[in-house]
Design a binder for these strands. Sequence first.
DNA 1: GTGTTAGGTTAACGCCGTTAAGTTAACGCT
DNA 2: AGCGTTAACTTAACGGCGTTAACCTAACAC
Lengths: 222, 222
Amino acid sequence: MTTTHPSSVDPPQSHRAQLEDAILEAARDFLAKGGVDALSMRAVAERVGVTATAIYHYFKNKQDLVDRVVRMGFERFGEYLERGMRAHPKGSLRRIQALGEAYLRFALENQAHFRVIFSIQPRHEQAVADLPEGGGYHLLRQSIVDAMHAGNLRRADPDLMSMYLWSSVHGLVTLTLSCAEPPTDGVRTPMSPVDLYEAFGPFLVDGIKPTPSGQSDGGEEQ
Amino acid sequence: MTTTHPSSVDPPQSHRAQLEDAILEAARDFLAKGGVDALSMRAVAERVGVTATAIYHYFKNKQDLVDRVVRMGFERFGEYLERGMRAHPKGSLRRIQALGEAYLRFALENQAHFRVIFSIQPRHEQAVADLPEGGGYHLLRQSIVDAMHAGNLRRADPDLMSMYLWSSVHGLVTLTLSCAEPPTDGVRTPMSPVDLYEAFGPFLVDGIKPTPSGQSDGGEEQ
DNA sequence: GTGTTAGGTTAACGCCGTTAAGTTAACGCT
DNA sequence: AGCGTTAACTTAACGGCGTTAACCTAACAC
């Protein structure tokens, strides 16, 4: 309704880019609420003040719109990882641990993105395929190689070790997201995922084999 | 069209139960093909030779139908776990390893069920909630307690250890299912999930800390 | 001033889950 | 035998979905 001035002072954000961003933002919100099913072209259109068909001038179809949101998520994902990593010295185990922690925090704080990215339905192959190359995988792998060279990590095939650590934290995250609903609810799980991640540390580092002394490090019953 | 005889010789399977089973079977097939989106009441109905609305005499709605399929999946899941467990003595690490292997095999061989059960969207809370109590969780937990008492497993809080091992194998499975499509395709992942699971064994048992001797057990580059 | 194009619109198609109302056959009962 | 009831299923319809086709209109190029 605002009489769109022919070209008012908005050189950084053209009208087009402005609307495109609005669509993406609305799409992300709906996606966050209930996944792909909760995102409808008509609802997004109404939110940004156009009709549904207008969206098709900006995105090829619904899948394309979702993919774009996922891509936005990946960028934020990378920021999480790099930020978490930079806080600890190269070659240290702490750096690897921080990567896992960042992975966990991203998943919890951006459940919409994470759910769409790692929806078990094998869509977004392209998006996931991007991950190993330019995304977070090479960060993890390089940190692992560094730690091995520094003598802080068991020497093994880096890709195998990467998959191992990745799947460890990924399992914790997905299990948490599968069983517990968004944090709106009260405490359902006995321990928070972050607490669990911390508690898993000794298992990961030292393994699950019995300690030589045989002492217990938890409340195991008689 | 078959002139349904008033009561021909079918005491074990009434006409009703027969149709219900057919609906469930068709629903499972569609679910397997492409998840919940690929399941439509009309398609299921056509497959079994009735109209869509007839299904509502057997199931409350689509969600109910999906839930019933999931429940069927859980039963089969339990069979996998028990079968894999029984092959190894109580208290042994092998028994726990076999549980993980069964988990993995179930997921790969029944991707439809697994995807629906652990779809990251937090539906099926009820179904997942059933799992810890009567399902596979207590099998894992008991095996862990046994192994701890037998001195084959590090002593720790059994629930913590259960979550750790569960999430380890769960992460491997979900990561595999996220990145690779169904086995129709050729070899995409460099290693099969089963191979990965085997290769992870030493990491799990002995941990990722450097070995005392510092020797490498994999192809780690210079 | 006119052609072109970007950026929308309305109308419609076919699919979806679901409900309401109607139909038809079988059964129980007197 | 006849009647009421009920189970099993149908057709018709509603509102919503993704998507396409056709149309409109204001801005710009020349």
